[in-house]
Every structure is written in C-alpha cells, then in structure tokens.
Amino acid sequence: MTVHTAQAECGNFQLAFYELGALYFKAPQGGYAGIDKDVIDELSKRSGCQFQTVLESRVRIWHQMSQQTLDVTVSGIATPEREKFARFIPYFTTRNFLLLSSSAPARAHSPEGFLSEPNLRVAVVKSFRHGALYDTWLAKLREQNRVEEAADFDSVVRLFMAKRVDAFLALPTSLEPLRRKELANSFIVLDWAPFDEVRHGLVLSRNRVPLPVMELMRREIRNMHEDGTLEKIYARYVGAEQAKYLLLKTTE
C-alpha cells in the first residue's frame, strides 16, 4: 500500500492526548514528548492518517468519547461500558503499583491490611481503570469514603505530597519519573498484582471512525510491534529493561 492510497483510505481525525508520566509530558526544550506521541507520529507516517491533536483531562476525554464528539484518544483501557461507544487497538501492556507512604504502618503493606486501617486514604485519577485486583480493592475503599479522586496524575501526586492521602497508584511509565524527584524517599513501591496484564490501546469512536480505517490502524500497529518499532519507542522513555515489560504478549 502506498502512502497516497493510505491517505485516501484514512482521513483526518481529532485526537486527544492527556499528560501522564512517560506517556505524554511537557519536554524541557519545549513542546510535548512521550510514548503516546511517538506512537501516533509513527502511525500517521505509516497509515497516512492525519491527526489534529488537543490536550485534555482524562475525565473530559471519556465524556467526549461517550458523547461521540471526539474521534480518537490514546492509551485507554477497554471495559464493557466503553466498548459500547469505542473500539480499542492495544499497543502496550502494564500493571499498576501501589505507592505507599513510608510512614504508613507495616500492616498496610497488603490490600487487606490497608483496608483494616480506617484512617488510611488513597488517591486515584477519576475515570481511570487499574486492573481487577485494584478496582475491587478501590470499590471497598469507596464504600468507606476513603478514596480521593483527582482530575489528573499530577494532582494525585500533589495530594500525596500534601499528606492528604497515604497512597496512590502508578504505572511504570509514571513511576520512573517519580523516582527521580525529591519525593522518592517518601514512598515505598508495592506490587500487589504481579500477574495483572492491563492492556492499553488506541481508542476509536465507533460512530466517527469507519471500520476500514480502524482495521488499517490495527494492521499498522501490529506491524510496529512485529518489526520492533514499539519496543524502541518504549526504551526511549523507560529504558530497555522496562520496555520489554510493556510489550504485548499477543497482538490482535
């Protein structure tokens, strides 16, 4: 397929990014950088699809997707509710870690132990999904009004720094930048769900992105996985070792 044919088959779509760790961040030299940006740039080059990009909060993105007023977004997690209005093309997999205050009691180092400490609170980004174990655990905490929900990950970190919460959840793509900051000694990292595989993908509006275009994008992302391009992009931001953990075990 030539680039001209791909362009004719594809089109021009509005795509929303959101800031989160190594996925999408403001670069020191200006502009934005990150895994999601590089994946989209490469996808556009290969498919001929053109993307008009905006920066939004994750809450607004999911609202717009559900209302069919946005074409595409990035690194989203499929749920039965979301699949009613969107199709998903996975391009990396990961899992969440709990970052717990170093001053929290040792008993809180397990999900059950944290639940048994009624004064402990956790912060999450509103509308995020975190995998089966964490979502079940968070549901129990919500019943006790022990969950603070913020609009974005930076706000979650600020809640933790202000000691308004005792823990928060982070992906490896967000964890590495945190370890380089001054607050690194204020938390310990707990891996409560080592067997979780939370697949993140391109999110395409069912009503606004034609099925043939979705298949075109899926094919190009699969090619990026098979020829090593995705692994190179991941390694650029999280290092070669962590990049291997982000690779999908199987592609669709």
Rank of each mutant, 00 (worst) to 15 (best):
E83H: 07
T53R: 11
V54L: 15
T251V: 11
P177Q: 09
D36M: 12
R60S: 15
A22S: 12
V203Y: 06
P80A: 08
F168L: 02
F85S: 10
R208F: 13
T73L: 03
E215S: 10
R179A: 08
E117M: 14
L115D: 08
L70G: 06
L115I: 15
S101A: 14
E117R: 00
N207Y: 05
K37P: 02
L98I: 14
T73V: 02
V124T: 15
E231T: 12
N12S: 14
I40K: 00
Y24T: 14
S75K: 01
F160V: 08
F153M: 09
E176D: 09
T79M: 07
I77R: 03
N145H: 06
R121S: 06
L216I: 06
F97M: 09
D135Q: 04
R208Q: 08
L138A: 04
C49L: 05
D36I: 15
S101Y: 02
D71K: 06
P111L: 10
K244L: 15
E197G: 06
I188K: 10
V74F: 00
L23T: 11
P210G: 03
Q7L: 08
I89D: 01
A193P: 02
H200K: 09
S116L: 12
L183N: 02
Y234C: 00
S110H: 13
E9N: 11
A184Y: 07
D135E: 14
S186K: 06
Q14F: 06
E220T: 09
P111E: 01
E9A: 08
E241Y: 02
K249T: 11
R46Y: 04
Q29F: 04
A132V: 12
Y18T: 08
T5E: 15
A150V: 07
V157H: 04
A22H: 01
V189N: 00
P172F: 10
P172E: 01
L159H: 10
I40E: 13
E197R: 11
D152E: 13
W192R: 01
F195V: 13
D191K: 05
A27E: 15
S110F: 05
A132G: 05
Q52H: 13
E83P: 03
Y134Q: 01
V156A: 05
